[in-house]
Amino acid sequence: MTTSSDAYSDTDVIEDASRSTTDAPSPPSVPSATLGGEQKRSLEQITLLLFITLPFLALVAAVPLAWGWGVSWLDLGLLVFMYYLGCHGITIGFHRYFTHGSFKAKRPLRIALAVAGSMAVEGPLVRWVADHRKHHKFSDAEGDPHSPWRFGETVPALMKGLWWAHIGWMFDEEQTSQEKYAPDLIKDPAIRAVSRQFLFWTIVSLAIPPLVGGLVTMSWWGAFTAFFWGSLVRVALLHHVTWSINSICHAVGKRPFKSRDRSGNVWWLAVLSCGESWHNLHHADPTSARHGVLKGQVDSSARIIRWCEQLGWATDVRWPSESRIDSRRKPKTVGPA
């Protein structure tokens, strides 16, 4: 395993990522990085509800439709391709690069990751990063935007907390300060522009499958089924896998590494989450470019980062050394003799 550095600090995620992702000078005054600012207005709340509800209804309808009519290889291919394009845009781009500075990216890769992550339809880039950095600062403690332990540890409280961590927190009108938690991204005009263009990239993301489906089949029905599977079902599936990292991976899972929260590894989400569900290591070592560090832990995001490094597109990748991994393991408990 290649190691670029063992000396980097992960004690201050915000400052560390700010130094790592951009050196752009700060303009004297910059506009808010998202159209809605730091408080969600009614129009934004309605839009968010539509982005969540419509794909979810399609996901519910997908089972009986697939049973009755089947799903074509074209529709399935579009679903898989668009799913993993958006998923890796989130995991590699929004999360490991923009939020935690796990590597440095050449300008074209930086813009491509911002666009790919935006096509996951999970909200504007700067807002996403600000929320996640705040989550790490207060993980599973007061101030965490989406901890499942928010309401207590009883079963009813945890059920309520899981709902909050999965979906409910997104409708909270009190928003994370983007100026405080993502100043480095706001300083970059190109990244700020991509973040403000979230609605445009959402439309592009939803339009690609029906466009391809319609052109390949030369029919409106082909365009419709491609939109249903490649746009709506795909977005709903990716939403719930991503949100499961906030909810499920902070409630259950194995915890072989030392962290100050309740983050756990959930193996059955690893492939769908592109390696994000190896969540315990991530919270034990937030700036690590690899989350699945143990034998057999699939982490497709780390593999793609490795390819980008080999191509010269990514540099200063923070691969964890064996000694760094060992230093974060929990001590083995010794039973009575």
Rank of each mutant, 00 (worst) to 15 (best):
A141C: 04
T154S: 13
P64K: 02
V60I: 15
D131K: 05
S321C: 06
D285K: 09
S273H: 03
Q39D: 14
Y84P: 06
D140P: 09
V266L: 04
I111W: 15
R234A: 11
S9C: 07
L78C: 11
S300L: 12
A114G: 15
D6P: 09
G86Y: 10
R260E: 06
A24V: 14
S147F: 04
A284Q: 02
P183D: 01
D6C: 07
F56W: 14
P55C: 02
I52D: 09
S277H: 06
I14C: 12
S321H: 13
S323K: 04
T2G: 09
K160F: 08
H95I: 11
L206M: 15
C274I: 01
I191W: 06
F200S: 10
K332E: 15
I92M: 14
L76P: 09
L211M: 13
A223C: 03
Y83D: 06
K254F: 04
M170Q: 12
H166F: 12
I46E: 01
D261E: 09
D316H: 14
F257L: 07
D188P: 08
G68C: 09
G230C: 09
R262F: 14
Y181V: 07
K160S: 06
H136D: 02
A302Y: 12
H291C: 01
I46D: 03
A314T: 06
D12I: 00
L54C: 12
G77F: 05
H240G: 04
Q178L: 14
L35H: 09
E309A: 08
A157E: 14
R96A: 10
S72R: 13
